[in-house]
């Protein structure tokens, strides 16, 4: 029972990471109709920025906020400068540009920071939290708290602010959006900026666990893909639920099904993705979209 609760807690913690990244993917997918293959590397690069600031002696939370702001601007610029020219191009072209971006960010990180694995601090005390006979890692709890807070903030933003409403409108119907005066291009860029922020937070929260290196996000990105696919690429709520589901399942399977363990983690994600796409391509919460011919 205690193991179950502990596993549930760490499942929720990794689920929060997957949910953040999956939400970032969904946000870009809804705005620009493209799966951002570079999402993981953008998050990784943000985490390196945070590391640089921390190394320069900036206090943790100041570095955290600064990284969030820098990542937002970075995401915005990536959309305006790199994605914009191929916005109306066929899917293949956009996918290739995203892959190009992935490769560039990955190698830049390697170039600047080397491929040596670096430790990354957690803002939470290392002392575990004892509730009765169950012991929870404080980092796990902190991760759950921060991701939930962030998701709540995004919900409020999209649901209740004019800008959030305009972003949803722009993603749905760009032509009508322009007719009510929404600057659609900027809304898309804003979407990329917010996605970069989600990624940055996920990266900083997961780095103490997986350590900092240029390829740190690839496995996590796959799990985010699986989460978004499970929840449905057209549904932000689905992506979040999918993220937590995947996180919990991963931890429980890792503990109770030794055959698969952690060695086939990525394969499990692959099977999950293909399985969902075959059985229910729109995911648990997604809308079936009408395909343009």
């Amino acid at each position: 029972m205690e193991t179950l609760l502990q596993q549930l807690a760490s499942g929720l913690a990794s689920g929060g990471i997957y949910a953040s990244l999956a939400l970032a993917l969904v946000m870009i997918y809804q705005a620009t109709d493209v799966v951002n293959f570079a999402q993981g590397e953008m998050a990784m690069f943000s985490t390196y920025l945070a590391w640089t600031l921390l190394n320069a002696g900036v206090p943790y939370w100041a570095a955290f906020v600064a990284t969030v702001v820098l990542s937002f601007v970075g995401g915005l610029l990536i959309e305006r400068l790199i994605i914009r020219p191929v916005e109306d191009a066929p899917i293949l072209s956009i996918v290739i540009v995203c892959i190009g971006l992935l490769v560039i960010l990955n190698s830049l990180a390697g170039w600047i920071y080397s491929y040596i694995i670096k430790p990354f601090p957690s803002p939470f005390p290392p002392r575990p939290l004892r509730l009765g006979s169950v012991v929870f890692g404080t980092h796990d709890l902190g991760v759950i708290g921060i991701t939930l807070l962030m998701l709540l903030g995004l919900y409020v933003f999209f649901r209740f602010t004019p800008l959030g409403l305009a972003m949803r409108a722009a993603a749905q119907n760009p032509v009508s959006s322009r007719l009510v005066g929404i600057r659609v291009g900027w809304m898309l860029a804003l979407g990329w900026g917010l996605a970069a922020v989600l990624g940055a937070v996920a990266g900083m929260l997961v780095a103490p666990v997986v350590f900092l290196e240029p390829n740190m996000m690839s496995g996590i990105l796959i799990y985010a893909f699986a989460s978004a696919t499970l929840g449905g690429f057209t549904s932000p709520v689905g992506a979040v639920v999918g993220g937590f589901l995947v996180g919990i399942t991963e931890n429980l399977v890792g503990t109770y099904v030794p055959l698969i363990g952690t060695e086939l983690k990525l394969t499990v994600a692959l099977v999950l993705i293909i399985g969902v796409l075959l059985v229910r391509p729109s995911g648990l919460f997604g809308r079936a979209t009408v395909r343009r011919v």
Binding site: P162, L165, A166, R168, A169, Q172, N173, V180, I182
Partner: peptide, 12 residues
């Protein structure tokens, strides 16, 4: 905007 509510459409 078919996936937004009537009032959201009007606010837009």
């Amino acid at each position: 905007f078919v996936n937004l509510t009537v009032e959201e459409n009007l606010r837009l």
